[in-house]
């Protein structure tokens, strides 16, 4: 039977008169990858910091592994791996010194160092290097090794792939899926929608401190959409696209080269096969898909008036 790993009950946090988190009720199940989505300043990091007991709830409560996040924070953190969004490392150490110190602090048993070395190899990271002067991406890799090496039951990752190159992002996705397959739970905050789509089972959408919805990724994708921009030879004609249900916001413009540009919004439930067949009617010089921003998803999700 799946058990709840994280549960929040009306979790609220105020910074003075500013309400950063308002009565959030959330449950994350064992073995799932839960994406916590929201624009900057929505309350994602505040929620994570409250769960980790860096800051205290103004009202409400939260439990992790059934333990109270305030009363039992040390016991909880023993079983957690955490990667902050803005990672600052103690840069007077090498990677291996850092790992050995973590091993001591965590009281980790045999295999910790070996696992750290395995992760370093996967992430193409040299543990012998000094942490001083490392790029954001390299620091991120060190942060991931530190968060994962003790094989925690719960990973809390705040904007984990920021600064990683595409190859390393793919490795990160594999690591997350491996963690899930081992029955471990991942709670990751992001505003990177493609990443969330690629690895998460469910997402919670937070906005202005309030949890707006908790959805499966397939539902989120269904209501999601893409922008398509076509550069084609010849004058713009959009009749074919107008007949496809779910395509909206069609616009055209003539280019100085004699060709034209066609831009449209394709709804999440539109068959891409139909769109591509229609695109094939043109002499295509360029074709570009853009994922919507979270704000656009919110507008789609809740209606422009409400948002």
């Amino acid at each position: 039977m799946t058990q709840s790993i994280i549960e929040t009950h009306n979790l609220t946090h105020h910074y003075g008169s500013f309400v950063a988190l308002q009565a959030v009720n959330l449950t994350v199940q064992q073995g799932e990858i839960f994406g916590f989505l929201g624009p900057n300043g929505a309350g994602k990091t505040t929620a994570i910091r409250t769960l980790l007991d860096f800051i205290r709830p103004s009202a409400g409560s939260a439990t992790i592994f059934g333990l109270d996040t305030v009363q039992d924070s040390v016991a909880i953190r023993r079983r957690i791996g955490y990667l902050p969004s803005e990672l600052a490392l103690w840069d007077n150490w090498t990677g291996i010194q850092y790992v050995r110190w973590l091993e001591e602090v965590r009281g980790a048993t045999n295999g910790y160092l070996k696992e750290a070395e395995r992760l370093a190899a996967r992430l193409d990271f040299d543990l012998a290097r000094s942490l001083k002067g490392m790029s954001t991406g390299m620091k991120r890799k060190m942060g991931l090794i530190a968060a994962l090496a003790h094989k925690p039951e719960l990973l809390i990752l705040d904007e984990p792939s920021t600064g990683l190159d595409p190859l390393m992002q793919a490795v990160f996705h594999e690591l997350m899926q491996e963690a899930r397959s081992e029955g471990r739970t991942v709670f990751l905050s992001s505003h990177n929608l493609p990443e969330v789509e690629a690895i998460c089972d469910r997402v919670g959408i937070i906005r202005q401190g309030q949890l707006e919805a908790v959805e499966s990724v397939s539902n989120l994708t269904r209501v999601s959409f893409r922008w398509l921009t076509l550069t084609v030879a010849g004058p713009p004609t959009v009749n074919g696209f107008q007949q496809i249900a779910g395509i909206t916001d069609l616009s055209t413009s003539a280019l100085p080269t004699g060709g034209s540009q066609i831009r449209m919004r394709i709804g999440g439930d539109v068959s891409m096969d139909t769109v591509i067949k229609q695109v094939a009617q043109f002499t295509v010089e360029d074709m570009r898909f853009e994922h919507p921003t979270l704000e656009e998803i919110f507008l789609t999700y809740y209606g422009e008036g409400e948002a």
């Binding site: 902050p84 990672l87 602090v105 965590r106």
Partner: peptide, 12 residues
């Protein structure tokens, strides 16, 4: 920001 790292460990 190093306080984040320290307090994410099992250290009271």
């Amino acid at each position: 920001g190093t306080m984040d790292l320290m307090l994410s460990l099992p250290v009271s």
